[in-house]
Design a protein around this nucleic acid. Structure first.
Lengths: 241, 241
DNA sequence: TCCATAATATGACATAGATCATGTTGTCAA
DNA sequence: TTGACAACATGATCTATGTCATATTATGGA
């Protein structure tokens, strides 16, 4: 198995990279120093696993470039995409790292990816000595929890067209780049990815996206989606019929 | 609207009560003192809202007795039960309290309930001064996040019978009281509650439960369910056909 | 104790969405 | 440029599950 190549950067380089990450920007210099010791940046190609379900959780990760999908699979081989991570997102900072339990899901790269890997122990120490950092993590986890529960609600109560609409709206709000034609989702999401995120079959997802495109709410730029009318999309996500 | 009556206890009483809660048992005496200042215990009757979706998040709650369901509703009036809380569970400790955002869902009592309410500010202060406490909360949130993602996966990939089986298995593991006949779920969960937890229609849920009962995996004691064969239930939750 | 109401149960039917089949379009490497 | 493969698209079924209708059985308050 190819786990990507690991490079170690100079302390200064690493510090400046960490500073760019919103969730870590509040760190004091002394914290930075302890963090950067033993920290490495890993690079992956498209389609590689950063970790798999069941692997031991040894690192705290921060995505610095590219996109990663968090995936769980069923025995039959069907995939559920729980979340798409974009630069700045933390992952595997959760229960697993603390409890010593294995990873509850996989992290799969969607293209070329760079990740900062921080040793569990260093991360742990940081949180113990820096309450501000711990509060930030609590806030982050709280938000992720809300998101996950919102997703669960969507799966439990909404129809296929609503699921697709709210999924696209969520993606647009989180990572849409404003352009003259609308919000550009500039990561390569296949219809299958979207289907796995919405808990729907590929064909159903394609049909729903076609419908939204015909209605003029959606367009494409190259091979990426453009949300042309976020407001109507959100209305549709809640409409009864 | 009747929000239940509020009583204020003596500091000693409160301290001893907090000590009984696993998640707070590690607290030092000085932390306890600051926490108990301004802390109140509230009592509710069956069917009351502790808070509703959209309410401002002013308190950190710890459930001391009874059962509470976390609920989100759709415009059409359908309910999704995200989680059933049992004594010792924290709630509303999440993003809302920190971000100043309103509650993302409702907390609805399922019977007579007692709740410790701790002012947002006191809770905040506790976490800032006690890294151990913050780490415990991070661990707790991490686990809740895993649970929520596991639920999302179930909703996305599993059939009705599997959903019911894994729901019952999860409940049995979390709160089943061992008895000679199996694991007793001694809170009053209606079929509708179970349906709302599994994201299924009431009738479908009833049919699945009847089937499990006929198969001998399930029984009842009074008006509560008994899981007679957890192992087979878990096998069923993953079976392909 | 009785009555009104809520909860449980079960059959008949409707339908959203999965599955299968087939074809088209796009993409990238040689 | 071409050829092979992946992604996208769309129609034709099939089926799991939702919905509706109707009983039966609990439950809790007067």
């Amino acid at each position: 198995m190819d786990w990507g190549s690991l490079y170690t950067f100079t302390a200064m380089d690493k510090t400046s990279r960490l500073r760019e990450i919103p969730l870590l920007s509040f760190l004091k210099d002394r914290d930075m120093q302890s963090l950067t010791t033993g920290m490495t940046e890993a690079h992956y190609k498209k389609g590689q696993y950063i970790f798999k379900e069941g692997d031991p959780a040894e690192w705290f990760h921060v995505l610095t470039s590219g996109a990663v999908k968090c995936v769980k699979s069923s025995p039959e081989g069907k995939e559920a995409v729980l979340k798409v991570l974009v630069p700045g997102d933390l992952f595997c900072c959760e229960a697993a790292v603390f409890d010593g339990t294995p990873h509850p899901g996989c992290a799969l790269t969607m293209g070329p990816v760079s990740v900062m890997k921080i040793r569990k122990a260093a991360y742990f120490k940081l949180l113990q000595h820096n309450p501000e950092a711990a509060l930030e993590i609590i806030k982050y986890l709280g938000n992720r929890l809300n998101e996950a529960q919102e997703t669960a609600k969507t799966f439990a109560l909404e129809r296929a067209d609503q699921r697709i609409a709210s999924l696209l709206a969520k993606l647009a709000e989180r990572m849409g780049k404003p352009t003259p034609h609308g919000l550009l989702l500039d990561i390569r999401l296949t219809r299958q990815d979207l289907a796995d995120m919405a808990g729907l079959a590929l064909e159903t997802t394609i049909r729903m996206i076609s419908k939204l495109t015909r209605k003029g709410l959606l367009g494409k730029s190259g091979r990426c989606l453009v949300i042309k009318n976020l407001k109507r999309l959100k209305t549709l996500a809640e409409s009864t019929v």
